[in-house]
Computed example of a mutant assay.
Amino acid sequence: MTLPTYLLKLMGSRVLAALAVLTGVLQIIDLLEVTTQILDRNLGAGGVAYYAMLRAPRLIEQAAPLAVLAGCLFAFGKLAGESAVTALRSTGISAYRITLMALPAVLALALVQLAIGMVIAPRTDQMLSAWWQASAPQDASKKITPVTFRLANEVVVALPRDPDGRSLESVIIYRRDQAGRLVERTTAPTAVWEAGRWTLIKPRFETLGIKTVSQGSANTMDWTQDLQPADVRAMAAGQTLVTPQEASRALAGGLSMRPRTYYETQLQRAWAAPFACIVMLLLAAPASMANFRGGGATLLVQCLAGGLLFLVFDGAFTALGENGAAPAILAAWAAPAMFSALGITALIYLEG
């Protein structure tokens, strides 16, 4: 077995083991919160299994960076404990090359995380949302509250009473000009989804002029194609997770319920999140230089602390970007860039 193959096998096995453990822990915590609700809906053990299967992609996506950190620390710690790195360095193989040999295993997981975030998880989220709402017990006394959202230059208030998301009630549409001034208010008792677009039933209009207000009405009126029934179901369920596709639609004038900066940050985060796996590798790489006879365990703790600190900074920068306090590109990429530089600097210093 060649050295690159051995390192790749060692790194891959440790990272996959850490990923399985972390995903399992997250899955157990998640199921503890919802198992009672699933059983109350008479879905049985099959319902619990189905829920766990649909939640698994999101949990894998969340666990991937920590799995890389833990797996790399175990792998590099094993090499350091066996003095394998010292032997390799004596033959002219540097710590940089050892890190590069471990990179393919981490890069593979980063690509899997990207595929999950971009393709797989958005679909399983929709399937889970539809299944959860379809199995919800009907409660006639439950009060349905209006939802407020934006579509391009319109602010809409409506009641999402239909569980299929194909109709809205008590619709009020406030249309604004480019400067954000109100120019028209449209009210309709019902809006229905037909033939790929929404139609307002018996709408009434109030158009604001400079000094006048013009009124009008119609039996039906075409409204928009930017709002999908799935969007209505998500709003009715109070779903807060935004996929990259939904963020792109919101920025292009589609459904939005948050500031524009939120969707810009989420779109940047979708691409930056998988890079966290590579950052974790760079932060864990100095552990390969640990000398356990001279207190090398401290270096492993420092590498672990660096990885956890990266997650804290990454979350803080993301929150700043979502609230508009920092540019979206800075909010998404600042922490990965800073901590990548930190890991590389530590490795250069230890390599001498």
Rank of each mutant, 00 (worst) to 15 (best):
M127N: 04
G306D: 04
I201E: 05
A84I: 13
A158G: 07
L208R: 07
E169H: 13
M101E: 06
E206L: 04
Q266N: 12
Q27V: 05
I144R: 10
S13N: 10
G315C: 11
A284E: 10
R55N: 10
I278V: 00
G77R: 02
A140H: 04
R175S: 14
G92A: 15
M289E: 14
Y262S: 13
A305P: 09
R176A: 08
L311H: 12
F275Y: 12
T186P: 02
P203R: 02
A335N: 06
F313D: 01
L308C: 06
D40Y: 08
V242P: 02
Q37L: 15
L168S: 00
A95E: 10
A285F: 06
G306M: 05
G238V: 15
A325Y: 11
S83Q: 14
T35P: 01
D314N: 13
L251G: 06
E33L: 15
Y263D: 13
Q178Y: 00
L342P: 03
G46A: 15
C303P: 03
R161F: 04
I210L: 09
A276E: 07
V171P: 02
Q138C: 00
V15T: 03
V112Q: 01
K202E: 08
L69W: 04
G71C: 11
G294Q: 10
D231K: 01
G165R: 01
A247W: 09
L283Y: 07
L267A: 12
K202G: 01
A110D: 11
R293F: 13
L267P: 03
T35K: 09
R58G: 05
A236H: 06
P4H: 03
V192A: 04
C277Q: 06
L342A: 08
A17K: 00
Y262N: 07
G294H: 07
L26R: 13
F339G: 00
V157G: 05
L22V: 06
G77Q: 05
A108R: 05
T345A: 15
V106P: 00
L159A: 00
D177A: 06
W223T: 00
L208H: 05
W223F: 15
I278Y: 03
T220K: 02
Q245Y: 12
A121W: 12
